[in-house]
């Protein structure tokens, strides 16, 4: 299969005014350079579902913005479907979809359906084509009941489903999702993950998804790229990441006195079942959570082993 996205030593530096306020700042501005993305290289094949993971400020959004042609890089290059994104905005626009979790592309006061209609017009779809496409997406993302409501009245989870539908109306081959699960509760996150994956599998959409949440990548993606401070620090299959870094489970139980007991289980040496059995025998458990190690731990671990 061919590489649908190629990224080669991509860099993005931002110049920030250091002393913004006051007269001195006006006449002698001092600049500070922030390197958001630092010589990033990777390739993505058609149909791959890639998680783009990293802590706050790692450069995930900046990378997505460059690949989706919103931003010019400082140096390095990239190709998306054989096109250099920032030089071929219009042409690429018809092949990529973008969702930025922190922004809405729907019209706040219009019924969701009308927003979809406008987006169809932006991409120049004719009515029949548009209706056929929308009815499929509406079924896939289970949003029939939401169509008549204005965006402002939707819950975050409902809105996010509509945002994703909005980005898929023109049948993009590549979908960029920047934190699609941000601010959602566990159930809503789960719904979004399932739907995104279902759509990607059904239409062979190439997916690049950023998140802080390691669960997002486990559930949706087959490959993971981790970046930190703009640099690539890990690029392999989810399976490989799990084998070598996600082998710890953070278990927290609450006993009937209300006390919380935390343990970390290394699943390589101790099966989860055994660890749970021990806990059950020791305590009167009223509540339990099992979590993957947080992002920071994984990154620390990657650095430690290097």
């Amino acid at each position: 299969m061919t590489d649908i996205i190629k990224v080669d030593r991509l860099c993005k530096k931002f110049r920030l005014k250091k002393n913004a306020a006051g007269l001195k700042g006006l006449f002698h501005p001092e600049y500070k350079t922030v390197t958001a993305v630092d010589r990033l290289s990777f390739n993505i094949k058609e149909g791959e579902r890639v998680a783009f993971i990293g802590p706050n400020g790692a450069g995930k959004s900046t990378t997505i913005k460059m690949l989706s042609s919103i931003l010019h890089p400082t140096s390095g290059t990239a190709e998306v479907m054989g096109l250099i994104p920032w030089e071929n905005r219009r042409r690429l626009a018809y092949h990529i979809g973008t969702v930025f979790g922190q922004r809405s592309q729907l019209w706040y006061n219009l019924p969701v359906q009308d927003s979809f209609g406008l987006i169809g017009k932006i991409y120049g779809l004719d009515d029949i084509e548009f209706r056929r496409r929308l009815s499929k997406l509406v079924r896939l993302f289970e949003i029939r009941d939401l169509l008549g409501h204005p965006t402002r009245s939707l819950s975050l989870g409902q809105r996010m489903r509509c945002e994703i539908v909005a980005s898929l109306i023109h049948r993009p081959q590549i979908l960029f999702l920047d934190e699609p699960t941000i601010g959602l509760d566990v159930t809503a996150k789960e719904i979004i993950r399932n739907l995104v994956k279902k759509q990607a599998l059904e239409e062979n959409t190439t997916l690049l998804l950023t998140s802080h949440d390691t669960d997002d990548m486990e559930k949706v993606c087959d490959r993971v790229i981790i970046i930190n401070k703009g640099r690539l620090i890990f690029d392999d299959s989810i399976h490989a990441l799990k084998e070598s870094y996600l082998n710890k489970k953070y278990i927290e139980v609450t006993d009937d006195s209300g006390a919380k007991i935390k343990t970390v289980v290394d699943t390589k040496t101790t099966p989860v079942k055994k660890a749970l059995d021990e806990l059950v025998q020791k305590y009167h458990i009223t509540d339990i959570t099992v979590e993957n190690p947080p992002m920071e731990e994984i990154i620390k671990e990657i650095y430690r082993r290097d």
Binding site: K65, S68, S69, I70, P85, R89, R90, L92, A93, Y94, I96, T98, F100, R103, Q105, I122, Y123, G124
Partner: peptide
């Protein structure tokens, strides 16, 4: 910054 997010739309 809303404008920036329209730059990659064909409009």
């Amino acid at each position: 910054g809303t404008m920036a997010y329209y730059i990659n739309k064909p409009i």
